[in-house]
Amino acid sequence: MQISSASTPPVIVPGANAGSNASAVDGTALGLNGENAATATPVTPTNNAAAPLRRGLSNWDQPLQGDISGAQQALDFLEQSAAQLRSLKSDLSTRLATRQRSDGALEARVRQFSNSWRSRTSASGGTLDSQLNFSTKGSNTSFTVRGLNLSNLRGGAREVIAVSIGGGQNVRSVVLEPGLSDEQIAQRFNDALAPAGVRAEISDDGQLTFSTAESQWANVRDTISLQGGGIRFPGGQLTRVKADAEAPQVDPDTWQTTDLESIRTTLAQVVQSLSKVEQSIASVRQALAQVAARVQSADPTATKGGMDQVAQNFVSTTKQPGYQSLLSITSALAGISRERVMSLLRLRS
Protein backbone atom coordinates (compact mmCIF):
# COMPACT_ATOMS: atom_id res chain seq x y z
CA MET A 1 0.00 0.00 0.00
CA GLN A 2 1.38 3.43 -0.93
CA ILE A 3 1.72 5.76 2.07
CA SER A 4 0.89 9.33 1.16
CA SER A 5 2.34 12.41 2.82
CA ALA A 6 1.45 12.75 6.50
CA SER A 7 0.82 16.45 6.19
CA THR A 8 -2.77 17.50 6.75
CA PRO A 9 -4.54 18.18 3.44
CA PRO A 10 -6.14 21.57 2.84
CA VAL A 11 -9.84 21.77 3.51
CA ILE A 12 -12.08 23.80 1.26
CA VAL A 13 -14.50 25.82 3.36
CA PRO A 14 -17.99 25.86 1.81
CA GLY A 15 -18.90 29.29 0.57
CA ALA A 16 -15.32 30.60 0.37
CA ASN A 17 -13.74 31.89 -2.81
CA ALA A 18 -11.97 28.94 -4.39
CA GLY A 19 -9.32 31.18 -5.88
CA SER A 20 -8.31 32.93 -2.66
CA ASN A 21 -5.89 31.81 -0.01
CA ALA A 22 -8.67 31.98 2.57
CA SER A 23 -10.41 29.05 0.93
CA ALA A 24 -7.66 26.61 1.86
CA VAL A 25 -7.46 26.13 5.61
CA ASP A 26 -5.04 23.75 7.26
CA GLY A 27 -6.97 20.80 8.72
CA THR A 28 -5.00 20.95 11.96
CA ALA A 29 -6.12 24.52 12.51
CA LEU A 30 -9.71 23.35 12.32
CA GLY A 31 -9.06 20.48 14.72
CA LEU A 32 -9.80 17.96 11.98
CA ASN A 33 -7.70 15.15 13.34
CA GLY A 34 -8.28 12.09 15.49
CA GLU A 35 -11.95 11.20 15.73
CA ASN A 36 -12.97 14.02 13.36
CA ALA A 37 -10.68 12.89 10.58
CA ALA A 38 -13.57 11.29 8.72
CA THR A 39 -14.96 14.74 7.92
CA ALA A 40 -11.63 16.22 6.93
CA THR A 41 -12.36 15.80 3.22
CA PRO A 42 -14.07 18.64 1.39
CA VAL A 43 -17.76 18.86 2.22
CA THR A 44 -20.14 19.56 -0.61
CA PRO A 45 -22.88 21.92 0.56
CA THR A 46 -26.40 20.53 0.41
CA ASN A 47 -29.80 21.89 1.34
CA ASN A 48 -29.46 20.19 4.74
CA ALA A 49 -25.87 21.34 5.35
CA ALA A 50 -26.79 24.74 6.75
CA ALA A 51 -26.64 23.31 10.27
CA PRO A 52 -23.18 22.34 11.55
CA LEU A 53 -22.21 18.70 11.25
CA ARG A 54 -22.66 16.80 14.48
CA ARG A 55 -21.00 13.54 15.49
CA GLY A 56 -22.94 10.29 15.92
CA LEU A 57 -22.83 8.65 19.37
CA SER A 58 -20.93 11.59 20.82
CA ASN A 59 -23.91 13.78 19.97
CA TRP A 60 -26.16 11.77 22.28
CA ASP A 61 -27.37 13.40 25.44
CA GLN A 62 -24.79 12.28 28.02
CA PRO A 63 -27.36 11.89 30.84
CA LEU A 64 -29.40 9.73 28.47
CA GLN A 65 -26.45 7.39 27.94
CA GLY A 66 -25.96 7.26 31.71
CA ASP A 67 -29.63 6.38 32.25
CA ILE A 68 -29.42 3.52 29.76
CA SER A 69 -26.20 2.15 31.22
CA GLY A 70 -27.43 2.45 34.83
CA ALA A 71 -30.77 0.81 34.13
CA GLN A 72 -29.12 -2.06 32.27
CA GLN A 73 -26.62 -2.65 35.07
CA ALA A 74 -29.41 -2.70 37.65
CA LEU A 75 -31.50 -5.02 35.52
CA ASP A 76 -28.62 -7.46 34.98
CA PHE A 77 -27.89 -7.58 38.71
CA LEU A 78 -31.54 -8.07 39.67
CA GLU A 79 -32.16 -10.80 37.10
CA GLN A 80 -29.07 -12.71 38.23
CA SER A 81 -30.18 -12.33 41.85
CA ALA A 82 -33.69 -13.53 41.00
CA ALA A 83 -32.25 -16.64 39.34
CA GLN A 84 -30.16 -17.38 42.42
CA LEU A 85 -33.16 -16.91 44.70
CA ARG A 86 -35.32 -19.26 42.63
CA SER A 87 -32.62 -21.93 42.79
CA LEU A 88 -32.21 -21.42 46.53
CA LYS A 89 -35.97 -21.58 47.01
CA SER A 90 -36.08 -24.92 45.20
CA ASP A 91 -33.26 -26.35 47.35
CA LEU A 92 -34.88 -25.22 50.60
CA SER A 93 -38.27 -26.58 49.57
CA THR A 94 -36.74 -29.95 48.71
CA ARG A 95 -35.02 -30.15 52.09
CA LEU A 96 -38.27 -29.44 53.90
CA ALA A 97 -40.28 -31.90 51.77
CA THR A 98 -37.78 -34.70 52.39
CA ARG A 99 -37.05 -33.53 55.94
CA GLN A 100 -33.36 -33.64 55.22
CA ARG A 101 -31.12 -31.77 57.59
CA SER A 102 -28.84 -29.04 56.35
CA ASP A 103 -25.40 -29.84 55.02
CA GLY A 104 -22.43 -27.90 53.75
CA ALA A 105 -23.83 -27.63 50.22
CA LEU A 106 -26.96 -25.77 51.31
CA GLU A 107 -25.01 -23.44 53.58
CA ALA A 108 -22.62 -22.75 50.71
CA ARG A 109 -25.53 -21.74 48.45
CA VAL A 110 -26.75 -19.28 51.06
CA ARG A 111 -23.24 -17.84 51.50
CA GLN A 112 -22.84 -17.57 47.74
CA PHE A 113 -25.98 -15.48 47.41
CA SER A 114 -25.03 -13.39 50.43
CA ASN A 115 -21.62 -12.60 48.94
CA SER A 116 -23.22 -11.74 45.62
CA TRP A 117 -25.78 -9.49 47.28
CA ARG A 118 -23.07 -7.51 49.08
CA SER A 119 -21.91 -6.28 45.68
CA ARG A 120 -25.31 -4.64 45.05
CA THR A 121 -23.96 -1.10 45.02
CA SER A 122 -21.05 -1.70 42.63
CA ALA A 123 -22.83 -4.30 40.47
CA SER A 124 -25.78 -1.98 39.89
CA GLY A 125 -23.60 1.03 39.21
CA GLY A 126 -24.90 2.68 42.38
CA THR A 127 -28.46 2.80 41.06
CA LEU A 128 -30.13 0.42 43.58
CA ASP A 129 -30.48 1.22 47.27
CA SER A 130 -31.17 -1.22 50.10
CA GLN A 131 -34.91 -0.82 49.51
CA LEU A 132 -34.40 -1.84 45.86
CA ASN A 133 -35.43 1.60 44.69
CA PHE A 134 -33.87 2.46 41.34
CA SER A 135 -32.39 5.89 40.68
CA THR A 136 -29.78 7.03 38.17
CA LYS A 137 -28.87 9.81 40.60
CA GLY A 138 -27.29 7.32 43.01
CA SER A 139 -28.46 5.13 45.87
CA ASN A 140 -29.35 6.58 49.27
CA THR A 141 -29.68 5.24 52.79
CA SER A 142 -32.79 6.23 54.73
CA PHE A 143 -32.52 6.44 58.51
CA THR A 144 -34.09 7.79 61.67
CA VAL A 145 -32.42 9.58 64.57
CA ARG A 146 -33.41 8.64 68.08
CA GLY A 147 -35.05 11.59 69.79
CA LEU A 148 -35.87 13.36 66.53
CA ASN A 149 -39.46 12.16 66.29
CA LEU A 150 -42.36 14.43 65.50
CA SER A 151 -44.24 13.78 68.73
CA ASN A 152 -41.22 15.06 70.67
CA LEU A 153 -40.51 17.98 68.35
CA ARG A 154 -44.05 19.40 68.16
CA GLY A 155 -44.46 20.28 71.82
CA GLY A 156 -42.66 22.72 74.08
CA ALA A 157 -41.54 26.32 73.92
CA ARG A 158 -39.16 27.85 71.43
CA GLU A 159 -35.82 26.08 71.33
CA VAL A 160 -32.72 26.12 69.17
CA ILE A 161 -31.39 22.66 68.35
CA ALA A 162 -27.75 22.39 67.33
CA VAL A 163 -27.00 19.45 65.04
CA SER A 164 -23.47 18.35 64.16
CA ILE A 165 -22.69 15.86 61.38
CA GLY A 166 -19.13 15.01 60.49
CA GLY A 167 -17.59 16.48 63.62
CA GLY A 168 -15.43 19.58 63.85
CA GLN A 169 -17.17 22.87 63.25
CA ASN A 170 -19.97 21.40 61.14
CA VAL A 171 -22.77 22.58 63.44
CA ARG A 172 -26.17 23.60 62.09
CA SER A 173 -29.03 25.24 63.98
CA VAL A 174 -32.72 24.32 63.77
CA VAL A 175 -35.22 26.65 65.44
CA LEU A 176 -38.33 24.92 66.79
CA GLU A 177 -41.37 26.94 67.80
CA PRO A 178 -44.87 26.12 69.05
CA GLY A 179 -47.46 25.69 66.30
CA LEU A 180 -45.15 24.35 63.57
CA SER A 181 -46.67 21.73 61.30
CA ASP A 182 -44.92 18.41 60.69
CA GLU A 183 -44.00 19.55 57.19
CA GLN A 184 -42.51 22.79 58.52
CA ILE A 185 -40.44 20.90 61.07
CA ALA A 186 -39.12 18.56 58.37
CA GLN A 187 -38.35 21.52 56.09
CA ARG A 188 -36.31 23.29 58.79
CA PHE A 189 -34.21 20.19 59.37
CA ASN A 190 -33.86 19.74 55.63
CA ASP A 191 -32.66 23.32 55.12
CA ALA A 192 -30.16 23.03 57.98
CA LEU A 193 -28.71 19.64 57.05
CA ALA A 194 -28.65 19.92 53.25
CA PRO A 195 -25.08 21.35 53.23
CA ALA A 196 -23.97 18.19 55.07
CA GLY A 197 -25.53 15.99 52.37
CA VAL A 198 -28.52 14.96 54.48
CA ARG A 199 -32.17 15.39 53.53
CA ALA A 200 -35.18 15.32 55.85
CA GLU A 201 -38.77 14.46 54.94
CA ILE A 202 -41.98 12.97 56.23
CA SER A 203 -42.25 9.26 55.40
CA ASP A 204 -45.39 7.55 54.17
CA ASP A 205 -46.18 6.42 57.72
CA GLY A 206 -45.87 9.96 59.09
CA GLN A 207 -42.39 9.71 60.62
CA LEU A 208 -39.53 12.18 60.36
CA THR A 209 -36.88 10.38 58.31
CA PHE A 210 -33.52 11.36 56.92
CA SER A 211 -31.49 10.17 53.95
CA THR A 212 -27.95 10.50 52.68
CA ALA A 213 -25.82 9.02 49.92
CA GLU A 214 -25.14 5.37 50.63
CA SER A 215 -21.41 6.01 50.33
CA GLN A 216 -21.64 8.64 53.10
CA TRP A 217 -23.87 6.66 55.47
CA ALA A 218 -21.11 5.23 57.68
CA ASN A 219 -19.67 8.68 58.35
CA VAL A 220 -23.09 10.22 58.99
CA ARG A 221 -24.14 7.37 61.28
CA ASP A 222 -21.07 7.70 63.49
CA THR A 223 -20.90 11.49 63.80
CA ILE A 224 -24.43 12.78 64.58
CA SER A 225 -24.56 14.91 67.74
CA LEU A 226 -27.32 17.10 69.22
CA GLN A 227 -27.53 19.94 71.68
CA GLY A 228 -30.70 21.67 72.88
CA GLY A 229 -31.71 24.30 75.38
CA GLY A 230 -33.07 21.98 78.04
CA ILE A 231 -36.60 21.78 76.63
CA ARG A 232 -36.60 18.91 74.14
CA PHE A 233 -32.89 18.13 74.42
CA PRO A 234 -30.39 18.82 77.20
CA GLY A 235 -28.14 21.82 76.97
CA GLY A 236 -24.42 21.91 77.58
CA GLN A 237 -22.21 20.07 75.12
CA LEU A 238 -23.11 18.24 71.95
CA THR A 239 -24.17 14.68 72.70
CA ARG A 240 -23.83 11.75 70.30
CA VAL A 241 -27.14 10.22 69.25
CA LYS A 242 -27.87 6.91 67.54
CA ALA A 243 -29.02 6.71 63.93
CA ASP A 244 -30.79 3.59 62.66
CA ALA A 245 -30.85 2.71 58.98
CA GLU A 246 -34.05 1.42 57.44
CA ALA A 247 -34.08 -2.37 57.37
CA PRO A 248 -33.04 -3.66 53.93
CA GLN A 249 -35.55 -5.46 51.75
CA VAL A 250 -33.16 -8.38 51.31
CA ASP A 251 -30.89 -9.39 54.19
CA PRO A 252 -29.27 -12.79 53.47
CA ASP A 253 -26.78 -12.39 56.32
CA THR A 254 -29.60 -13.31 58.72
CA TRP A 255 -30.59 -16.52 56.92
CA GLN A 256 -29.89 -19.74 58.79
CA THR A 257 -30.05 -23.40 57.72
CA THR A 258 -28.90 -25.22 60.85
CA ASP A 259 -32.14 -27.20 61.35
CA LEU A 260 -35.57 -27.76 59.79
CA GLU A 261 -37.13 -24.82 61.65
CA SER A 262 -34.45 -22.39 60.51
CA ILE A 263 -34.73 -23.76 56.96
CA ARG A 264 -38.48 -23.10 57.06
CA THR A 265 -37.90 -19.53 58.27
CA THR A 266 -35.23 -18.93 55.65
CA LEU A 267 -37.50 -20.27 52.91
CA ALA A 268 -40.15 -17.72 53.86
CA GLN A 269 -37.55 -14.96 53.75
CA VAL A 270 -36.26 -16.15 50.36
CA VAL A 271 -39.80 -16.15 48.93
CA GLN A 272 -40.38 -12.64 50.24
CA SER A 273 -37.04 -11.45 48.89
CA LEU A 274 -37.76 -12.95 45.47
CA SER A 275 -41.05 -11.07 45.35
CA LYS A 276 -39.28 -7.79 46.19
CA VAL A 277 -36.59 -8.41 43.55
CA GLU A 278 -39.21 -9.19 40.89
CA GLN A 279 -41.07 -5.98 41.73
CA SER A 280 -37.82 -4.05 41.37
CA ILE A 281 -37.16 -5.76 38.02
CA ALA A 282 -40.54 -4.56 36.75
CA SER A 283 -39.76 -1.04 37.96
CA VAL A 284 -36.34 -0.94 36.28
CA ARG A 285 -37.76 -2.36 33.04
CA GLN A 286 -40.34 0.41 33.05
CA ALA A 287 -37.60 2.99 33.55
CA LEU A 288 -35.58 1.44 30.72
CA ALA A 289 -38.64 1.52 28.46
CA GLN A 290 -39.08 5.20 29.22
CA VAL A 291 -35.47 5.86 28.26
CA ALA A 292 -35.98 3.87 25.05
CA ALA A 293 -39.04 6.00 24.31
CA ARG A 294 -36.90 9.11 24.71
CA VAL A 295 -34.45 7.68 22.18
CA GLN A 296 -37.21 6.78 19.73
CA SER A 297 -38.89 10.18 20.07
CA ALA A 298 -35.68 12.04 19.26
CA ASP A 299 -36.18 13.89 15.96
CA PRO A 300 -33.60 12.60 13.48
CA THR A 301 -34.44 15.16 10.78
CA ALA A 302 -32.31 17.87 12.39
CA THR A 303 -29.12 15.90 11.89
CA LYS A 304 -29.95 13.58 8.99
CA GLY A 305 -28.44 15.76 6.28
CA GLY A 306 -25.28 16.41 8.23
CA MET A 307 -24.81 12.78 9.21
CA ASP A 308 -25.40 11.63 5.63
CA GLN A 309 -22.62 13.99 4.56
CA VAL A 310 -20.31 12.64 7.29
CA ALA A 311 -21.02 9.07 6.18
CA GLN A 312 -20.35 9.96 2.54
CA ASN A 313 -17.07 11.65 3.48
CA PHE A 314 -16.03 8.64 5.53
CA VAL A 315 -16.68 6.21 2.67
CA SER A 316 -14.79 8.43 0.22
CA THR A 317 -11.82 8.79 2.53
CA THR A 318 -11.49 5.11 3.39
CA LYS A 319 -11.57 4.09 -0.29
CA GLN A 320 -8.37 6.01 -0.94
CA PRO A 321 -5.07 4.40 0.14
CA GLY A 322 -2.93 6.39 2.47
CA TYR A 323 -2.50 7.66 5.99
CA GLN A 324 -5.78 9.59 5.97
CA SER A 325 -7.71 6.38 5.29
CA LEU A 326 -6.12 4.55 8.21
CA LEU A 327 -6.68 7.54 10.49
CA SER A 328 -10.37 7.69 9.63
CA ILE A 329 -10.93 3.98 10.33
CA THR A 330 -9.05 3.87 13.63
CA SER A 331 -10.71 7.08 14.81
CA ALA A 332 -14.15 5.70 14.03
CA LEU A 333 -13.48 2.63 16.17
CA ALA A 334 -11.96 4.52 19.09
CA GLY A 335 -14.14 4.62 22.20
CA ILE A 336 -16.64 2.00 21.03
CA SER A 337 -16.86 -0.58 23.81
CA ARG A 338 -18.75 -3.85 23.99
CA GLU A 339 -20.95 -2.48 26.79
CA ARG A 340 -22.03 0.50 24.70
CA VAL A 341 -22.88 -1.64 21.69
CA MET A 342 -24.85 -4.12 23.82
CA SER A 343 -26.81 -1.33 25.50
CA LEU A 344 -27.81 0.07 22.10
CA LEU A 345 -28.76 -3.33 20.72
CA ARG A 346 -31.00 -4.04 23.71
CA LEU A 347 -33.08 -0.98 22.87
CA ARG A 348 -34.09 -2.67 19.61
CA SER A 349 -35.12 -5.97 21.24
Rank of each mutant, 00 (worst) to 15 (best):
W117R: 05
G138V: 09
K89A: 03
S119T: 14
S119V: 06
S124P: 00
S119F: 03
L106N: 09
R101W: 05
T94D: 14
F134S: 07
G125P: 05
R95K: 12
G126S: 04
F113I: 01
E107F: 03
Q100E: 13
T94M: 10
R111K: 15
A97M: 06
G125S: 07
Q100Y: 08
R120S: 12
Q131M: 08
L128A: 11
R120C: 09
R101V: 10
L88Q: 04
E107P: 00
G125Y: 06
S124V: 02
S116M: 06
G126K: 04
N133V: 11
F134K: 04
S135P: 07
N140C: 01
S90V: 14
S102Q: 01
N140Y: 04
F143P: 00
L106G: 08
T121C: 02
R111W: 02
V145A: 01
S116A: 14
S90R: 09
S102V: 01
Q100L: 12
N140R: 11
N133R: 15
N115E: 11
G104L: 09
D91G: 03
G138D: 10
S135C: 06
S90G: 07
R109Q: 15
S119G: 08
S102D: 03
R111T: 14
S93V: 06
T127K: 10
L92F: 09
L88T: 03
N140P: 01
V110D: 00
N140H: 06
S119N: 12
T98P: 05
T98D: 14
S142R: 14
Q100N: 13
S90N: 12
R111Y: 03
L128P: 06
K89P: 00
S102Y: 00
S124R: 03
D103L: 06
E107K: 12
L88A: 02
V145H: 01
W117Y: 15
S130N: 12
N115L: 11
G104Y: 04
A123H: 03
A97H: 02
V110Q: 08
G126M: 01
S142K: 11
T127D: 08
G138L: 07
S102W: 00
G125R: 05
S90I: 08
Q100K: 10
A105N: 12
V110A: 04
S122T: 15
K137S: 14
S135M: 05
R95D: 10
R95M: 11
T94K: 13
S124D: 02
N115T: 13
A123Q: 09
R95P: 04
F134L: 07
R95I: 04
R111N: 15
A108D: 10
T98C: 08
Q112S: 13
R120Q: 15
